[in-house]
């Protein structure tokens, strides 16, 4: 039983750390209204940069996270550049950046696909050493602190003039252009912030799992979308912007709990991506199916 509880605790802490990535996906998917596939690449990028700097460069783990974040901003800028300046559809622009990041990540890690951080200091090992708390407890605490700080930051940012213009860009491009906003800039900014958060999350997950791996981000976008969908189902009734951001992180935690439970029940870990895709596909299909069903039911031969 205690093994089960421990794995649940681990799932929650992973969920919170990945939840930071989900915040990034929320910005593009929910606010900007595009599915940005850069995410898979930039999540791995964050981890690879972090691992390389700590292990090969002997960097301070916090400084390494800052560089991860910056690398993510840059990756987002590349997608933004392709999308806004050269008008490549957002999905394709994201795929191009994602694919190129796979090679770039491999280069960053000096040709190795995996760098272990077993003996290196991380922000998690620091706190484990000073407080004596368990690894997953420390992950949870750090995850919550960072997530809360980021939610507060995003809440503030999207309330500013610039943030409001960004939200309006996702809602109605014609309108916000007519009001004097250069939507190339707002889209670029949104993609940068989004991928910055994703890479930061990648760096944190890398430090907590004690390795950086070029395959770490594979399917991250689907996890992000699944988490948003789950959060929406659970907390969709809350309308304030802050609670919407919170529900994205909560959705991530629930996703990782579900994952831990089905794995405990003996499901093959390799099937998890299939399950994630099914969750997202169902979430996208159900509203459409319900609408069609309602339409069919409301039709009455001969009228009412």
């Amino acid at each position: 039983m205690s093994g089960f509880l421990l794995s649940m605790q681990g799932a929650v802490s992973q969920g919170v750390l990945w939840g930071i990535m989900v915040l990034g996906v929320y910005i593009t998917y929910k606010i900007l209204n595009i599915a940005d596939l850069t995410v898979d690449g930039s999540f791995a990028l964050g981890g690879c940069v972090c691992a390389t700097l700590i292990v090969n460069g002997g960097w301070n783990p916090v400084a390494a996270l800052v560089i991860s974040l910056a690398a993510g901003l840059l990756a987002g800028a590349v997608t933004g550049f392709l999308h806004t300046v050269f008008e490549i559809p957002a999905i394709l622009a994201g795929i191009l950046t994602q694919i190129s990041l796979w090679s770039i990540n491999l280069r960053i890690m000096g040709g190795k696909s995996n760098i272990p951080l077993l003996k290196a200091d991380t922000i998690f090992s620091w706190i484990v050493d000073t407080t004596g708390l368990s690894q997953s407890m420390v992950s949870l605490i750090i995850g919550i602190v960072v997530a809360v700080a980021l939610i507060a930051f995003l809440y503030w940012f999207f309330g500013t003039e610039l943030g409001a213009a960004l939200r309006a860009t996702g809602d109605n491009e014609d309108m916000i252009r007519a009001l004097g906003v250069n939507i190339k800039k707002t889209k670029m900014l949104a993609l940068m912030i989004s991928n910055g958060l994703v890479a930061l999350s990648g760096g944190l997950v890398c430090q907590s799992q004690k390795y950086g791996d070029i395959n770490n981000g594979t399917g991250a976008i689907v996890i992000g979308l699944a988490a948003i969908v789950i959060g929406d189902v659970l907390l969709g009734r809350l309308r304030s912007f802050g609670s919407k951001l919170t529900s994205a992180v909560v959705g991530s935690v629930v996703y990782f709990l579900i994952r831990a439970i089905v794995l405990q029940m003996g499901m093959d870990a390799n099937d998890m991506k299939l399950l994630s895709a099914i969750i997202v596909a169902l979430a996208l299909c159900v509203p459409v199916a319900v609408d069609k069903w309602k339409l069919r039911r409301s039709y009455m031969e001969g009228g009412n």
């Binding site: 940012f157 309330g159 500013t160 003039e161 610039l162 943030g163 409001a164 213009a165 309006a168 916000i176 009001l179 004097g180 906003v181």
Partner: peptide
């Protein structure tokens, strides 16, 4: 919010509250 967006038409949008 729509009105506030329109009120800032043609002005620089910065990090002041919206």
């Amino acid at each position: 919010e729509n009105l506030a967006l329109a009120y800032r038409r043609g002005q620089k949008r910065g990090l002041r509250w919206g």
